[in-house]
Amino acid sequence: MEEAFAKLDIRKPENIVYKRTDLLVDRPLSYCPGCGHGVANRILMETIEEMGIQDKTIGISPVGCSVLAYDFMNIDMLGAAHGRAPALATAIKRLWPDHFVFTYQGDGDLAAIGTAETIHACNRGENITIIFINNAIYGMTGGQMAPTTLEGMRTATCPYGRDVKIMGNPLKITELISQLPGTYFVTRQSVHTPVNARRAKKAIRMAMENQKLNKGVSFVEIVSNCNSGWKMTPNQANKWMEENMFPFYPLGDLKVDGKLVEKK
């Protein structure tokens, strides 16, 4: 069979219609099979490649499942302490105003331990892009309750389901930051189907392009599954996400060009 392909000589550069972006380092990702991080990493790197800004981009990875994102993304990156990525991004963007700066953070990182850094970077209107992966759980540490864990959802630290009377309410941080005058573009996407992944990539493109306008934070939430943490197969996890996560965290733009989007 391989011989046949070689003879057909179809593997010429001009015949390639799709390939892995050069901005993803050629090494296995550390994410669980079925997890949304892989696609999110890829579409972010594809965007930077398509914009031709690899040499002018500085990324910041968080603590959490994507702590090693700097190993996969072929750009200059800093690994922040837990929750502090927006503080790093603030300084870097102000010190390198002609560079593109993004943070890539999970829900525990961005909406629990780093809430103050998130809110204040957004409120100051730092000219940065924040990519926020929300899977409603602490994946890397073994599936504990996150600030975004849904009411009734079971995790290792709410094994009987999140009881909001005891554990407090899930935090809609994206709605919260969309209210801040320093945010220019706020959207919520997913990457669990090809259509959704394309929409998410478009949103990331806009979020990166916005940095040229110097008008404030562009914030892209990606609602993602955590099949390992949720104890489901990837297909079950995606279905569960559609049925339970999307009603509470509805997809779509919250703020475009600095204006809140009217709810239908």
């Binding site: 500085i58 302490a81 503080a87 790093l88 603030t90 010190l95 103050a116």
Partner: peptide, 26 residues
């Protein structure tokens, strides 16, 4: 020279981590 009043000392030192990591005198 950039001068910024941060929201906390925690943010200040992490701004230094960011700036220092890019080789700036912070």
């Amino acid at each position: 020279m950039v001068v910024l009043q941060a929201e906390s000392e925690v943010a200040s030192i992490n701004m230094l981590y960011g700036g220092g990591g890019t080789g700036k005198m912070v």
